[in-house]
């Protein structure tokens, strides 16, 4: 049983890692048309994430693999139930990968502006879609006794999930904006720093509204938060992290501000996870059909093997991720090999 809980935590860590790491490069993509005005500036913005975006995206792939291994029934139910939405996610993920790679391969202005647009739209699309997906997971899904659900795209686009998607877009734009301050110089830096306070205000308003809305929904999260009140430390600490981040921004200590933003995102993910535990997918038709960390998990031998693999792998991953970020620290300088 401790293995099931461990895998729940590990899974949240992987998804949290994805939202924090790919989150800032998605945010950079969303902000790119607003802060970069000519070709050179666009390239600077793109290259701020150039050496790391691919490693960041791996966290999502790892999330897919870990879900398949640890909670195969969730993997099967969620992805087949979200079929068309998943296909859209794949479409935007592919588009984004090629937009980054293809953009600067030709001089033509039309070519470049086309892929700039794809880069923006796909970054926006991934963030919105994943936010909407999370919204639907929180609301609960019509899972039947076989673990299946039939949904079309429009069912997923309900007001609550869309609100969560929009909040996600603003949150990651802010996160990406703070990251950009570490990487760019004037005049891009000036535009970014002017944008950040606006994003911060928008984020506060939206996040407060979404949290309120979440508590008003009749879901296990509401009951869990009233039953074990101590888990409120997650959202409270997230608020603290946001305020601390705000102070760092005011003091122009951007690295600290970025770390505060990352911590806040981690705590928000923790807040959702703590509210859901031990449920992974809540069935809105019958709570007997809930997929939980016990009934949806792989058996103990698999979880154990995977745990050992994770314990061997994670230190390496952290080591070279840190090394690569350290190596590419500092402001962007364009050269022959830049995107």
């Amino acid at each position: 049983m401790w293995l099931n809980t461990t895998w729940f935590v590990l899974y949240v860590v992987i998804i949290g890692g994805y939202v924090i790491l790919d989150g800032f490069d998605l945010g950079v993509g969303i902000l790119s048309p607003f802060v970069a005005k000519d070709d050179r500036e666009r390239r600077v913005v793109l290259n701020s994430i150039g050496p790391v975006w691919d490693g960041n995206e791996v966290w999502l792939v790892l999330g897919g693999g870990a879900l398949f291994a640890a909670f195969p029934l969730v993997y099967a139910s969620l992805f087949s139930g979200f079929y068309m939405a998943m296909m859209l996610v794949l479409l935007v993920l592919i588009t984004r990968t090629v937009a980054v790679e293809f953009r600067s391969q030709r001089e033509s202005a039309r070519w470049r502006s086309t892929f700039d647009w794809f880069f923006f739209a796909s970054s926006f699309g991934i963030t919105l879609l994943l936010g909407v997906a999370l919204g639907n997971v929180i609301r609960g899904l019509p899972i039947d006794a076989q673990g299946n659900m039939s949904l079309n795209l429009l069912d997923l686009l309900n007001p609550y999930s869309l609100a969560l998607g929009v909040t996600g877009v603003v949150m990651l734009s802010l996160h990406g904006g703070i990251f950009l301050t570490l990487k760019v110089e004037d005049p891009i830096l000036e535009r970014v720093t002017r944008l950040i306070p606006k994003l911060m205000v928008a984020f506060f308003v939206l996040m407060t509204a979404t949290i309120g809305w979440t508590l008003l929904l009749d879901t296990p999260i509401t009951t869990n938060y009233s039953d074990r009140i101590w888990i409120a430390v997650f959202p409270v600490l997230a608020l603290v992290a946001a305020v601390v981040g705000w102070r760092f921004i005011r003091a122009q200590q951007y690295l600290q501000a970025f770390l505060a933003s990352a911590t806040m995102i981690a705590l928000l993910m923790g807040a959702v996870a703590a509210g859901l535990y031990p449920i992974l997918l809540h069935s809105s038709t019958d709570s007997a059909n809930d997929l939980t960390i016990t009934n949806a998990a792989s058996a103990e031998p698999t979880l154990m093997v995977m745990f050992v693999i994770a314990m061997i792998g994670i230190p390496f991953v952290l080591l070279y991720t840190a090394g690569v970020y350290y190596f590419f620290r500092g402001k962007v300088v364009l050269d022959d090999e830049s995107y």
Partner: peptide, 10 residues
């Protein structure tokens, strides 16, 4: 699933 996840992490 475990083989795919191992591929991811390693």
């Amino acid at each position: 699933g475990s083989l795919l996840a191992a591929e991811g992490i390693f």
